[in-house]
Design a protein around this nucleic acid. Structure first.
Lengths: 202, 202
DNA sequence: GTCTATAAGGTGATAGAC
DNA sequence: GTCTATCACCTTATAGAC
């Protein structure tokens, strides 16, 4: 009953419960496609189907809209990673990280794209928050590599460099992968893990 | 004598020979720092020290300014790569590519940053030109990997994926490397080559 | 070759009507 | 909760003076 009401076509009237999420979804789509600076509040409003004034009932300003998208994406990413059981062995942990990262990035291409394209459009305060979250995620991989190094299973010249190199490699997938192409998502995960396994091996 | 004249401070008058390059340099700096959409022609003019109308003597519009920067960067990159003698062995060729790419990217951080951040602000026609150049550069690495695969020196599950993965990894260096940090440029080149060598090895 | 002035239109954000 | 109207300002690009 409530759902039916919420889904009714209503060009006018109150939509409090769903307008907020719809604004964020529209902003994500448009920011990812055209870039934060190139998208106007009027365009976002048009995408949602409201007038521009209504946007300011749900966000204090355009900057906060961007920050909320990036902040939500990073927190969801870390929460999803931490919710999965971690294997006991560093090699298995690395394989798990590689597969998780590729799979998750391919499931959220717009948010991933925003998260590394629009960092410079954050205020310094907001940037610091996002950078700390990003660093926290990277640290989870760095810890795994350090453990493998300590156990003698890995032989990397520099753990921090290897961490950055692996994440950069994995992020690259989103720039070229297309469903229905030559390789499946699973194949992409496995081929990357195979290359990384060899690169890290003692 | 000519050089002295060209370097004199002249708030008014003709500067034809140097104003064009100065406009491009200012645009590169500002586009890289703030993003194409966020930078106005007035800002570029102010950076050069002319009024906005003067810009249009050297570029037909803002879009062309961006395109010329990306086009010049890609052509210079490919010309610099092709100007160097290529070793005879696929393993040595790959090592050469890795070192060249890291070194060159660190020497041109603003142009590299523009080249993967502002592709979406190109018109479709301009985008197609830049993409073809980018693809041509990637093909040079792909050819090397295919040769190594054919000779049995490399064992990669997919040459095109390995090409994209290696370039993504190498491009990542520009996001974190700082001179005077824990590692030198040479060390970063060698550690990456060591990881890539192992990842490709038969 | 460069300047000033201008055209035509877009910007983020807010006030007050309903 | 949403709309309309508005503010003060910025945008790209061009015309014509010098």
């Amino acid at each position: 009953m409530f759902i039916y009401f919420a889904l009714m076509a209503r060009p006018k009237g109150s939509n409090a419960e769903i307008t907020g999420p719809r604004i964020r979804a529209a902003a994500l789509r448009l920011f990812a496609r055209d870039g934060y600076a190139a998208v106007s509040m009027r365009q976002i409003a048009a995408e949602v189907g409201v007038q521009v004034g209504a946007l300011y009932l749900y966000t204090s300003d355009k900057q906060t809209l961007l920050f909320d998208l990036l902040d939500g994406h990073m927190r969801d990413l870390i929460a999803a990673y931490d919710a999965q059981p971690l294997p006991g062995d560093p090699i298995d942990q690395t394989a798990h990280f590689v597969r998780f990262h590729i799979r998750r990035n391919l499931e959220h291409p717009a948010a991933v794209f925003l998260s590394y394209m629009e960092l410079r459009n954050l205020t310094p305060e907001n940037f610091a928050v996002i950078e700390a979250l990003r660093r926290g995620y990277e640290d989870r991989l760095a810890r795994i590599l350090a453990d493998g190094q300590a156990s003698g299973q890995f032989a990397v010249a520099d753990v921090r460099l290897a961490t950055m190199a692996i994440i950069a490699m994995l992020n690259g997938v989103n720039t070229w992968f297309r469903d229905g192409g030559r390789l499946t998502r699973s194949e992409v995960e496995e081929i990357h893990w195979d290359m990384i396994r060899k690169a890290l091996a003692a």
